[in-house]
Simulated scan of single mutants.
Amino acid sequence: MVLATEWPEYRNVDPTTLTGRTAEALMVDCRTPPSTPPAGAQPAGRCTRSVGPKSSTGTADKGDPDNDPKENPVDLLKNGTMFDVVDALSGVCASANMDLSRDELLALQVAKPAEEAGEALHALQGTMGLMPRCAETCNSRGEHTWGGVSNDCVGAFFASLIALKYIEPEEWRTILVTGVRQRLTEIGSPLADTFTGEPHMLDAAEELAKSYTASAGQVTEQELPTLAVGNLAREAGEAIHALHGIKGLLTRDEECGPQTHSWIGVQHHLVGSCLTALVALSVIDPAGWRETFAEISFRRPRRGREAMAA
Rank of each mutant, 00 (worst) to 15 (best):
V2Q: 08
A4N: 05
E6V: 06
E6P: 06
W7R: 10
R11H: 10
R11E: 07
T19D: 04
G20T: 11
G20A: 03
G20S: 09
A23Y: 06
A23F: 05
A23L: 08
A25V: 03
L26V: 13
R31P: 10
T32A: 15
P34F: 15
P37L: 09
P38A: 08
G40W: 09
Q42S: 07
C47Q: 11
G58M: 13
G58Y: 06
D61W: 13
D64T: 06
D68G: 01
D68N: 00
D75C: 08
L77I: 14
K78M: 15
S90N: 08
V92A: 03
C93D: 07
S95F: 00
D99C: 09
S101T: 15
A107V: 09
A111C: 10
P113I: 01
E115K: 05
E115P: 02
E116A: 05
A117W: 04
A117C: 07
A117F: 08
L124P: 07
T127R: 04
M128G: 04
G129D: 01
R133Q: 13
C134L: 09
T137P: 04
H144V: 00
T145I: 07
W146L: 13
V149C: 09
A156Q: 14
A159P: 06
E168V: 04
R173W: 04
L176Y: 09
L184W: 01
T185N: 07
G188L: 10
G188N: 01
S189P: 00
L191I: 00
L191T: 03
P199C: 02
M201H: 07
A204L: 06
E206R: 03
E207H: 03
S211R: 04
T213N: 00
A214K: 12
S215H: 09
S215L: 13
A216V: 01
E223L: 05
A228D: 01
V229P: 06
N231R: 13
E238H: 15
L243C: 10
H244E: 02
T251I: 12
E255G: 14
C256Y: 15
C256M: 14
T260L: 01
S262M: 13
I264E: 07
H268W: 15
H268N: 14
L270I: 02
G272D: 08
A277S: 12
V279A: 05
L281S: 14
E291S: 07
E291T: 10
T292C: 02
F293P: 01
F298A: 02
R299Y: 03
R299C: 02
R303M: 02
E306V: 11
A309L: 09
A310L: 10
